[in-house]
Design a protein around this nucleic acid. Structure first.
Length: 562
DNA sequence: GCCGTTTTCGGCCCGACTGTTTTCAGTCG
């Protein structure tokens, strides 16, 4: 069982307890701790070492025992019975907290449907503490949730799919197992996992899958395929194909439909009668595309079919790869709201094989995140430079993720910023300001000569929160003028800039950086999601600032300070 | 529920805005 699955179970317990009026601090903390564990919690559980982890006491440890053993704990089952299932959904509405959920519950509203009906009938505004605005917000929120219904973020889906592929590959009956479908194209939100296998005998593999410990139930089944749901209801499709047909089916299932249709229309230009011949003969994608007179098109570029014309014209970009990155320029430590220590983060950066990295904790205004006072920041900077000086193989930059304040001022004075190796500016608060105010804030940051990078430029949280009200084209044009770099944030919930915007940024010649924003050393690996995002935007290594050698990066950072 | 003491009980990230109210509870990051 994946640590993430255990963390979700603990979070669910926390949510359920909270709705019942309890204060489940330790359950939330335990969830966060388990999520960030280096080694599998199942292993620690088997060795009886769970309780040794700070944040996990006897009660939580016992809970994890049961979750690992049975998939759910007794407490979870009991709590689920006590709380109407629809209420959990209600709690996800933006602007609706526990207290309001409880209020709704007391007045007999336990599902989104009931709430929607009441809101439309203008009855919700009559509840104590409610008004027309909240009523409208509830309707907007319901619409938002509907749009993201049954969708899972790539950060959740990909590890599950990879675990399943690993499991399949180590079976003697399986010759090949590959992720396919929208996940392979790097889509941000997904409804399922699709895996293509070559196996013999197929029936033995399907039989095994039915009894796989992560499988909660079988949703559909045929002679060549099976669809199972894991404990969190995520459907996994596993389809077996003949080895000779693998490449064709892999391309077809990777999709999307428009890309496949374009390929089919190429049948006429390939040698006579060869379509079916090539289709069955090819076992790898390169050969398959070649048979259609095309170079191989990376999955991230497969879209509306225009990429086929681009490929024909020999204009496919040489997409950036994870190995091109020489450093990560945005991460947190325990000095602010990170989990790992400064030393641990630096060590983790070393293990990533980076040439350089930047420590960028939060600034003082973000008190929730224990943002650093000026004195603390200077103390940290001193420490970082000590570490960096000791290591000849990797440079650690002393940076800061500085808040852009609600009144469009920056959180630190220029004199302090000037002394930092790297300055990131971010909007974290007052996200619902009107556009003119948001623009004013972004303008201040971009125009400041000490600001090197604007982080998560639109503030979106995929599936949770819309971007703040910003005219992205306006922002990109300004960034191009000021020469400020824009970030592709690799946190799977953010992936901000979105590919379309990153593409525009590239066209405008804006330096782009791919960062993790890791709050935990184990999350430095999330950089791959940012790279996927960059590939979907058609970015090449040279478009990305942190693929460049330290000297060139340094030249960029010093550009405005001379 | 967990932790760490000023060690067996109290604190648990905290300040400001929003939408509702006429002084504040609730939400958010």
């Amino acid at each position: 069982m994946h640590n993430q699955e255990i963390a979700w179970a603990l979070s669910e317990i926390a949510d359920l307890l909270e709705i019942q009026g309890e204060k489940p601090w330790s359950w939330r903390k335990a969830a966060r701790v388990v999520e960030g564990l280096e080694s599998p919690a199942t292993l620690l559980q088997a060795r009886g070492q769970l309780e040794k982890i700070p944040g996990i006491g006897p009660a939580v440890a016992q809970e994890i025992d049961q979750i690992v053993h049975d998939g759910v704990s007794r407490r979870q089952r009991k709590l689920r019975q006590q709380v109407p299932p629809g209420l959990m959904e209600v709690g996800k509405l933006p602007g609706i907290g526990v207290a309001t959920v409880q209020l709704f519950f007391r007045h007999g509203f336990t599902t989104l449907e009931e709430l929607e009906e009441a809101a439309r009938a203008r009855k919700l505004r009559r509840l104590p503490g409610m008004g027309p605005k909240t009523e409208a917000a509830v309707l907007r929120g319901i619409e938002f949730l509907r749009r993201h219904h049954d969708k899972y973020g790539i950060g959740i889906v990909k590890p599950i799919a990879e675990d399943m592929c690993r499991f399949l590959r180590q079976l003697a009956e399986v010759q090949r197992a590959e992720i396919t479908g929208p996940l392979r194209r790097g889509q941000e939100l997904l409804t399922d996992v699709q895996i293509l296998i070559v196996a013999n005998p197929v029936s033995a593999v399907l039989q095994l899958l039915r009894r796989h410990p992560s499988v909660e139930k079988v949703l559909a089944e045929g002679p060549q395929s099976i669809c199972v749901a894991n404990v969190f209801g995520l459907p996994l499709w596993i389809e077996a194909v003949d080895e000779a047909d693998f490449a064709r089916r892999w391309v077809e299932t990777t999709g999307p439909a428009a890309h496949w249709q374009q390929l089919q229309s190429r049948k006429s230009v390939t040698p006579a009668n060869s379509w079916s011949h090539y289709l069955s003969a090819q076992e790898n994608e390169e050969a398959f595309y070649q048979s259609l007179g095309l170079p191989w098109i990376p999955p991230e570029l497969r879209a509306n079919g225009q990429e086929v014309a681009q490929a024909l014209a020999g204009q496919l970009p040489a997409l950036i790869e994870a190995g091109d990155l020489r450093g990560d320029l945005h991460m947190h430590t325990g000095w602010s709201d990170g989990v790992s220590t400064l030393e641990e983060m630096i060590q983790a950066g070393r293990e990533q094989g980076y040439e350089y990295m930047a420590i960028t904790d939060h600034s003082r205004a973000l008190s929730v995140a224990r943002g650093l006072s000026e004195a603390k920041l200077q103390e940290q900077r001193r420490l970082i430079r000590q570490y960096s000086g000791r290591d000849k193989t990797m440079t650690v930059l002393a940076g800061i993720e500085m808040d852009i304040l609600p009144d469009a001022r920056l959180d630190y004075p220029d004199e302090l910023l000037e002394g930092m190796d790297l300055v990131i500016a971010s909007v974290h608060t007052h996200l619902r300001q009107e556009r003119s105010k948001i623009h004013q804030r972004i303008e201040t940051a971009l125009k400041n000569p000490h600001v090197d990078i604007l982080a998560h430029p639109t503030g979106r949280l995929i599936g949770h929160r819309e971007p703040f009200d910003v005219d992205v084209e306006w922002m990109l044009e300004l960034a191009a003028k000021t020469g400020t770099a824009l970030e592709i944030n690799s946190t799977p919930d953010r992936l901000d800039l979105a590919p379309a915007h990153a593409r525009m940024a590239r066209e405008l010649g804006i330096p782009i950086v791919i960062n993790t924003d890791a709050h935990d050393r184990s999350r430095l690996g999330d950089i791959r999601y940012g790279v996927t995002q960059a590939r979907r935007a058609g970015l090449e290594a040279e478009d990305v600032l942190n693929t460049r050698p330290l000297k060139e990066l340094q030249a960029f950072l010093d550009r405005s300070k001379g």
